[in-house]
């Protein structure tokens, strides 16, 4: 017998005399009426930032100006492969480790937990290494509940990305004297662009 078989046999023996209990089904919390608004509220209360692009300007140009207007101004960016061409800032592209900001595209967002849902196909280093992470949230992709978003992801089945990150605010820690500090490892600013 292998270790695997021995463990599984012990598990089977341990639970043999015990009644198999049923799965209670979905948690099914009542969904928010306006998911987009609920997302903004939750995400910002966790320290995330939300901006809306200027509808009068091309998205790429707007983002370029936005990044240049940050403090400190972003000179070089890392851009995830899934960001559509018209949404890319016109700034020099550099490696994520040296970029002032990472720009990526979310697969969607969840309102109740206030999470951006980021597939690994969107570029992990882009999402994690730069001090500022700017995320395009496509229109109509805010799910009322994380549960709904995960159900949708689940449907991808074989096509599920190798990894999915949920980002629900900037990196933080309270490990030093219980004081909250931001930007410990991951991005210190996490900015969702809606629309």
């Amino acid at each position: 017998m292998t270790g695997r078989e021995r463990i599984l046999a012990r598990v089977a023996r341990a639970t043999a005399g015990r009644e198999g209990l049923p799965h209670p089904g979905p948690l099914d919390v009542p969904p928010a009426d306006d998911p987009a608004a609920a997302f903004v509220k939750r995400f910002t209360s966790s320290g995330g930032e939300v901006v809306e692009p200027d509808p009068g300007r091309p998205a790429g140009a707007w983002l370029t100006a936005f990044l240049e207007g940050l403090d400190p101004a972003v000179a070089g960016v890392a851009i995830g492969p899934e960001v559509p061409p018209e949404r890319r800032p016109r700034l020099p592209e550099v490696a994520a480790a040296h970029a002032g900001a990472g720009v990526s595209a979310a697969w969607g967002a969840a309102a109740d937990s206030g999470s951006l849902i980021l597939p690994s196909t969107g570029g992990r280093a882009v999402q994690l290494l730069p001090p500022v992470h700017v995320v395009w949230v496509p229109e109509g992709r805010v799910f009322a509940r994380l549960e709904d978003a995960l159900a949708e992801l689940r449907k991808l089945d074989e096509d599920l990305p190798a990894a999915v990150g949920l980002h629900s605010g900037p990196s933080k820690s309270a490990d030093i004297g219980q004081t909250v500090v931001t930007g410990v490892h991951g991005p210190g600013r996490c900015i969702a662009v809606m629309g």
């Binding site: 992990r124 599920l160 190798a162 990150g165 629900s168 933080k172």
Partner: peptide, 23 residues
């Protein structure tokens, strides 16, 4: 911690697939 969710959650299905840049 009383947060609605952790700031970061990783959901990992396996190693990087082609054509991913990293992982």
């Amino acid at each position: 911690t009383g947060q609605p969710i952790g700031c970061f959650v990783s959901l990992i299905q396996g190693p990087a697939l082609h054509p991913e840049d990293d992982g």
